[in-house]
Write a protein that binds this DNA or RNA. Sequence first.
DNA 1: CCGAATTACGAAGCATGCTTCGTATTTTGA
DNA 2: TCAAAATACGAAGCATGCTTCGTAATTCGG
Lengths: 164, 164
Amino acid sequence: MRQAKIRRSGGRHRPWPLSERPGYLIRRLHQIHVALFQDACGAFEVTPLQYSLLSALAVRETADQTTLAADIALDRTTTTGALKRLAARHLVERAVNKDDRRARLCRLTPAGAALLVKIEGAARRAHRATLGDLSEREQALFIEMMQRIVAGNPSRDSATALFD
Amino acid sequence: MRQAKIRRSGGRHRPWPLSERPGYLIRRLHQIHVALFQDACGAFEVTPLQYSLLSALAVRETADQTTLAADIALDRTTTTGALKRLAARHLVERAVNKDDRRARLCRLTPAGAALLVKIEGAARRAHRATLGDLSEREQALFIEMMQRIVAGNPSRDSATALFD
DNA sequence: CCGAATTACGAAGCATGCTTCGTATTTTGA
DNA sequence: TCAAAATACGAAGCATGCTTCGTAATTCGG
């Protein structure tokens, strides 16, 4: 049996350093990635989220906002805001669906598609650089572990019913 | 020499799926942690950031806002906002430093210190649960790799001079 | 000792992210 | 068929996160 740790300095137990807490480290990683992405892609005036949206739209060709939100695992209202900003810059079109007037069908404009192509190399480098301090083998392992965590924690929309 | 990949479907090359991009996975991990933290600690009306701040204050006893921001690797103005909200709830005191009237010295109130103790168990479980889909050994490895990435990417304050 | 650099803040503005509440539209089931 | 449920949005509000610009106070070099 392992020996219990000795407590120093009275009743206050040893605090758990931030730098060992998974949540803190994840926040820092996110912060680091965003900074690297801005370094690489800032000239194109595109944020990581916007790049995700443009990518999703390139795959979908056309999709309503709720579908896009699910694609990128983002809140519906947040997605709407981002799409509005992209539409204001004429990178995305948002037109009411004639067949279902509740929905707004979004699609890339030619300018949006062109921007996506132009950015891709830099964006890819930024993503790679985020894990640049790990070896190639470790990077693959790290990505695999993140995927496993994501798979084990399904995104919670209000759509995802708790009772069914 | 390895054979070049064959392109299907005309000129469009295969898109890089979101679920393989480090930045996307990191954003999802952050999202997952925040949700787990809220599940565990929501009853205490404390967010992960606020918990980090309270923890940092417990270690420092007393500190000005800029020091705290550096402690938790957060922007100075964001830190100020969070501290204001904590102060509004009487968990933190913010008093102008008599020796240096530019600075505001912050410290935990008794209520803040008590809350920190009360939350600690739940917060620790939330942090652990975030990596819950990995084995014990993998969790340690994952944390170590995150620490290495963080160490390799020093936080960028405006204070951190680019030229010196 | 006094002007200049530094430091600690605050305000304003933009972009995420989330929740809750309300509305318009479509679908569905009795 | 027609009221009820489901769906897609929008608006409002709060909490991060960041940048830039401005202000007040302190420190430091000549």
